[in-house]
Design a protein around this nucleic acid. Structure first.
Lengths: 161, 161
DNA sequence: TTAAAAATTGACACAAAATACCAATAAATA
DNA sequence: TATTTATTGGTATTTTGTGTCAATTTTTAA
């Protein structure tokens, strides 16, 4: 059951719920040409299998007073594994950090940071980021304009044959 | 009415729906110490005002066969505005591009690209990205490990006084 | 091709939630 | 303080979610 073999209907359900998580099961069932019962069962199965990880409201950042988004590339000295782990754990617990990835390339970590203002970012940078364990270099890329936000994942036919 | 002055209850509603968009209005009302009716009315107002932009299911990328996330920095020649606009429009319509921002710093645009495999990324890079109008330089940063995904926005007290 | 087994579906019934409307309360204004 | 305005809580109705079961479809193997 945990094996993820998705059929066409599953994929349509995922795509629809990605677009609107508040769709009624009745509406959803109509759109995928099922009756409500089997449709609901599929959704529950997708939830239980972990393919649907959760449902979230998308908020307008400006509307909630978060005017500034910054992408931050961070180099970390990783002579010991411990240091990298300490860094990871610290990052996870920072509410300003919306997203964080270990990446290849020039930087080691790439964070997405959201703050109310430039002043707040300055404070966050000097007061928090620069003090994280093992940080050797930080590059800030300020988001000037969102071109595409919260895009949904492409669910065409990525099925494992 | 469209003026966004959020009180403490509004902010708690937003935080809760950010965490779980499928909360029942009854549950939500309990958590914020309101009866269902005024709670629902607040939610509707937040939706109408645009502060709640939508509700989305969060999917497991691996689970839907999208094994690879790449952050792509792109430099675009912007001698004319037109070229930048053409680039923007093209990017918005690419399903593989989940997120795109115009940023300051070394690159002009920062994209988050999601694909099934390295081969698919190669094809996307050479077949699509490199052919976009005005592109002069591309740097790919492959996500090796997600440290923090889909973090919720920090909603402490960013109210405009 | 046929027969048996398994999985999936659709319909029904019940419980729970969403929604609209009302009077009552609280807050804001003059 | 008096009046207006906004917000709240309760009730009734409609809609939705959810579990059960028989019917259908699909799969598997002979």
């Amino acid at each position: 059951m945990p094996i993820g073999q998705l059929d066409a209907i599953d994929r349509r359900i995922l795509a629809l719920l990605q677009g609107d998580a508040r769709l009624t099961n009745v509406e959803l069932a109509e759109k995928v040409n099922l009756s409500p019962s089997p449709c609901l069962r599929r959704v529950r199965r997708l939830e239980a299998s972990g393919i649907i990880r959760g449902y979230h409201a998308e908020l307008d950042r400006r509307g909630v007073g978060l005017e500034l988004t910054v992408f931050v590339g961070i180099k970390v000295e990783r002579h010991h594994e411990e240091q990298a782990n300490a860094f990871r754990e610290a990052v996870v617990n920072l509410p300003e950090v919306v997203t964080a990835h270990l990446v290849s390339g020039e930087s080691d970590f790439l964070l997405q940071v959201v703050v109310p203002s430039l002043a707040a970012y300055e404070a966050f940078l000097t007061g928090t980021l620069l003090r994280l364990p093992g940080v050797s270099d930080i590059r800030s890329h300020f988001a000037i304009q969102p071109v595409k936000e919260y895009g949904t994942l492409p669910l065409a036919n990525n099925n494992k044959t």
